[in-house]
């Protein structure tokens, strides 16, 4: 049998997964289910971006600090 995505899941990015599972498949809303309706990749994308910007800024601060100390 051919390997499927879970067999190669190390290589599958979270983006690739979210591109499928967020608003595809059986999509139900209404009062008998709980489901977060207004979440899509763009919304999460913004959050992913913000978190990577935060990481970048932290890294920048980390690299800037030592040079400030040298002064």
């Amino acid at each position: 049998m051919q390997e499927n995505v879970i067999d190669q899941s190390k290589d599958i990015t979270i983006l690739e997964i979210l591109d499928r599972v967020l608003n595809k498949g059986v999509v139900l809303t209404g009062d008998i289910v709980i489901s977060v309706a207004d979440i899509d990749l763009v919304y999460l994308g913004v959050k992913l971006l913000l978190s990577s910007v935060e990481t970048m800024q932290k890294n920048k601060l980390n690299t800037v600090k030592p040079s400030l100390q040298i002064k």
Partner: peptide, 14 residues
């Protein structure tokens, strides 16, 4: 038939 990620029914009856 896959369901969208994070679909939760409030009860088995539902």
């Amino acid at each position: 038939i896959p369901f969208k990620f994070g679909t939760i029914f409030k009860s088995e009856e539902n």
